[in-house]
Design a binder for these strands. Structure first.
Lengths: 350, 350
DNA sequence: TTGAAAGCGCTAACAG
DNA sequence: CTGTTAGCGCTTTCAA
């Protein structure tokens, strides 16, 4: 049909009949040298003081011929790819989705080509993806929400690639994160306040979701405890259920908690929207859920969830500010390890 | 601190002190030729019948020296990048998020390096992104949910790049889509059935969201009408509010509808979760929302929204099946235009 | 103002 | 079984 041939793996091989145009083709047609064409087509012609006339002729011919620059060849020669990579745990939620989208926009605004890979919170995949990005010659790699950011930084350093951390901090590269402790403390205080306002007896809340050993969860637990202390309450460790983010894990954890003979606390601090799904599912399945009576707080933000439920408090991380800080670091060339800690905001429930 | 230098734009320049290792470095250390090293390191050494011993020695040295293959150079020489690109409208929802995640996994399983770009439903950005991908030498480009798939296909064809469509069909390349009409018909029927079951009078529903001129919205409207006809109802055009996907547009459209002196129909067909946000917000703001009384159906799926609301029906597109069909096409080398139309599933409300 | 020539790192003929 | 050599498309001295 269109002249494709296929190799053993079934992949489409190069079509000899659609040989891509090169600067040599354009040069020949324009009666100029490849050098001139290269300069005109990559924008460096001003400083090479090529005549306006020649530049225009070349541009026109390139356009007409459907010339497209081979960035691989260009990068090989310049020893600079203008590629910027990012590792991100998931795409399908508001937080990481917004990070990915904003990262792309800001990279493009700087004439960098963004390459994002989603690692599904799998440490092995994170390392593999980092190595692949380096092999593809990214100039800079951002590890977002990585389980072991320092490991990634070391891999980058071995190849002389700059790296930065986002969302979860590392000790070896600059990190931009949210003030998880402060946000969690405010959220916890707000849930307790809701209890008070509803005339219910104050009691320690349940904490569900996350990984006890990751920095963010640890910080949120610290904020959770601090808010309890502020309210004159103790937050006993057995009320902290940090067995992962997945909905099923949350459901199982609450089921086990109740099976242990304990009463469900009057309010719940949930560590992400994905965990919230499991929490609400359990509550509904056990007739413990009433949109008007539930006292739920979620350290994460989803506008649809927010508008669908009556009494859900959500903490929204400031993605634009985080990305602005990240790119300020990138633009400045800063490579020293340091943590930039940004405040979170409240996205009122309902 | 680490020997970085910065150019005018503030970007980090190449560090001369961390010159990357090449196959020549490894060859010298291994006392072998660059050819042998290349073959061993890219896996083609079996057919070159290189001795096990040499291969092992080379592998070990490459490992120790932190060698990383330069894929740009490799691609330049082979005239095949093993890059596969995808254009996607958004990341931050379950549908496109799952598509992006699944696409990456399936590409990696085939030793292709996936490059995804999010185009925010902006036609200009779609074209720009397509051209950028081609300049970066993708072997194949998948346009997902593109506003003008055929335009993208033509750009690809001009450079001899294979292209495929996902979610929204084109006339010039193979397309994998959902059965929007059938899914919408079933969803509409289910909303009407809910009305009946609740003992409410049957009346035409409101359709909100989407773009009247995109294929999927048109098909869904067709299914919506067909279900009305099946129930002996007419679905008048003024009940079809397809003014975009954004929540604000949905709110504005409903407000204008009501301001026009019309009564709100007893049930609403919503064209996406993002639109649903606007619909629910309007209903709540106007005291027309009660989780138990509302009859809402959404052509899109979000498990958190589903579990948070009592009476919300959701249609789930079969992302794994769509990706399987897409990659079957890719693997087979098929380039002829044809549409593969996959059934949707119901994700029961509540 | 412009062009010729070298070479980025890798792979594929081809020669041994 | 292994090595030599040429060249992928581009950019960058350097020379004119």
């Amino acid at each position: 049909m269109n002249g494709n041939s296929r190799d053993a793996a079934g992949n489409t091989a190069r079509r000899p009949n659609v040989r891509r145009k090169t600067i040599y083709d354009v040069a020949r047609l324009a009666g100029a040298s490849p050098t001139a064409v290269s300069a005109v087509l990559n924008g460096s012609w001003r400083k090479r003081r090529i005549s306006e006339a020649l530049a225009e002729r070349i541009l026109k011919i390139a356009e007409d011929e459907g010339y497209s620059r081979n960035m691989q060849a260009s990068a090989l020669r310049r020893e600079r790819s203008h590629l910027i990579g990012m590792l991100v745990p998931k795409y399908d939620n508001r937080y990481f989705g917004a990070i990915a989208e904003g990262f792309e926009a800001m990279a493009r605004a700087r004439d960098l080509f963004p390459i994002i890979t989603c690692t599904l919170r799998d440490p092995r995949l994170e390392l593999e993806a980092a190595r692949a990005m380096i092999a593809h010659q990214v100039d800079c790699l951002v590890a977002c929400g990585a389980t072991d950011p320092d490991r990634i930084t070391r891999i980058c350093q071995a190849s002389g690639v700059r790296s930065l951390n986002l969302d979860l901090p590392g000790k070896l590269a600059p990190s931009v994160i949210s003030d998880n402790r402060g946000g969690a403390q405010a959220l916890t205080a707000a849930i307790l306040q809701g209890l008070r306002a509803a005339g219910k007896p104050l009691a320690p809340l349940l904490f569900v979701g996350g990984r006890a050993h990751d920095h963010n969860t640890a910080e949120r637990i610290a904020g959770f405890r601090a808010a309890h202390a502020d309210a004159g309450l103790a937050a006993p460790p057995e009320l902290t259920l940090a067995a992962g983010y997945a909905p099923e894990k949350a459901e199982a954890a609450i089921a086990a908690f109740v099976a242990g003979g304990r009463n469900l606390p009057p309010g719940v601090f949930v560590n992400s929207t994905i965990t919230l799904e499991g929490v609400v599912r359990w509550l509904k399945a056990n007739d413990a859920y009433d949109t008007r009576a539930a006292h739920l707080g979620c350290f994460d933000w989803d506008p649809l969830a927010s508008v669908l439920s009556e009494n859900l408090l959500m903490v929204r991380q400031d993605v634009p500010a985080m990305l602005a800080a990240l790119f300020a670091l990138i633009d400045s060339g800063e490579s020293r390890a340091a943590i930039i800690d940004l405040p979170t905001r409240f996205a009122g429930g309902g």
